[in-house]
């Protein structure tokens, strides 16, 4: 008796859980699998403006759902990925792009690491050169023959 009740409860919770999951994903009537893949690819490249650490594809925020629907509609209208991105950038700024475009404002972002790498290399080279110039005698006592 209890066992049967338990089974029924389990079945009900599984069913309800399944519904809740289906609601979160909201299946969209894609034309074909290729379009669905394109949609997935595009929404993974875009940032949800509200919860900024999530992509549009992953976010459950109402605005993310609205923007997904908007992207879906624009795809049905035959707009390209670039046009859809432009549409979102015009409204939500470049913040929505995970991949920042290369322009004067983002030069530091793109080339900063290279700059730091060059600076670090310079410092290391200078240190090595200084050491080779004869300060070696002063450094020698550090090596006292212990091999550990």
């Amino acid at each position: 008796m209890t066992r049967q009740l338990f089974r029924m409860l389990l079945a009900a919770s599984l069913l309800l859980g399944g519904f809740a999951h289906a609601q979160a994903i909201e299946p969209m009537p894609f034309k074909d699998h290729a379009q669905e893949l394109r949609f997935q690819h595009l929404t993974h490249q875009l940032r949800c403006p509200m919860c900024q650490n999530e992509t549009l594809a992953d976010s459950n925020a109402p605005i993310a759902r609205d923007l997904r629907n908007q992207i879906f509609r624009m795809m049905q209208q035959g707009r390209s990925d670039e046009e859809i991105k432009q549409y979102l950038v015009a409204r939500y700024s470049e913040f929505v792009l995970y991949d920042p475009p290369l322009k004067p404002g983002t030069w530091l972002l793109w080339f900063g690491p290279l700059l730091i790498l060059c600076g670090g290399t310079g410092v290391v080279l200078a240190a090595i050169r200084r050491r080779n110039r004869g300060d070696g005698a002063a450094e020698a006592p550090t090596d006292n023959g212990d091999d550990w």
Binding site: P49, M50, P62, I63, D66, L67, Q70, R91, Y92, S93
Partner: peptide, 12 residues
């Protein structure tokens, strides 16, 4: 529906 709000860049 929140459709016009997208044009305003509203996100919350």
């Amino acid at each position: 529906p929140g459709q016009t709000a997208i044009d305003f860049g509203v996100y919350g």
